[in-house]
Amino acid sequence: MFKKIAIGAVAGLALFAGFVATRPDTFTVTRSATVPGSPDIAFGLVNDFHQWNQWSPWEGLDPDMKRTFGGAESGVGATYAWTGNDDVGQGQMTIEEASVNASIRVKLEFIKPFASTSITTFAFKPADTGTTVHWTMTGDHNFISKAMCLFMDMDQVVGKDFEKGLASLKTAAQAEATKRAEAEAKASVAAPTP
């Protein structure tokens, strides 16, 4: 009896492992939103890791999170490392490419709760009502992440965070656009007329 149960369990595990192995080797999560203002506003909020506290959906998950900024002040070579609770884990981001007001490529490396590396890209395109921001993350699945995705939908889980982040980016971009408009109005009033 025990032998039959053991053979059945091994066969079940083998079938499960075989099924997991057939799952996609890569993943892509993408969301987009139109934010107020010209592309330089949204680009500036993403290209400078010091600005991420205004819009990143993960910034508020651990009030005691430790942050370390390194490399360039912003743009290519800028780094942002964090260590926090179970909600945020530990990892680092590095800006690898930045095309002014057009696109940014970020290497995202998680250390905890499990090691993984992904590429995150942001694309900024002028729109009638501001700037359309496309936020995309791509990466590779190992066996464990393939198995996890049988029980949770990566697009839904990460996609919700992207949606929250883009909504906050919209608020931050609106604040910056308003600030600039007010500064321009004051400057035009203060400027002497010829």
Rank of each mutant, 00 (worst) to 15 (best):
P39A: 05
G75H: 04
F69Q: 04
G91P: 00
S38P: 00
W52Q: 10
S38N: 10
A187F: 01
T193K: 07
H50I: 03
Q90Y: 01
E176Y: 02
F114V: 09
S145C: 08
K146Q: 10
F43R: 05
T136P: 08
G70Q: 09
K170C: 12
F69E: 06
D140I: 07
L166I: 12
K179G: 03
V46T: 04
N101W: 03
A17W: 01
A21G: 05
G84H: 08
D62A: 11
T22H: 03
D40E: 15
V88I: 15
A175R: 10
S103K: 10
W135Y: 08
M137T: 15
W58Y: 14
D128A: 15
E59C: 03
A191N: 08
L61H: 11
G139C: 09
G44V: 05
D40T: 09
T132I: 12
A14P: 01
A102Q: 15
T138R: 03
V76M: 04
D64N: 15
T120Y: 00
T132F: 04
K160P: 01
A42M: 07
E176N: 04
A183I: 06
A190H: 02
R23Y: 04
L108P: 00
R23K: 11
G12Y: 01
T129M: 09
V10W: 00
F124Y: 09
G165E: 14
A78P: 00
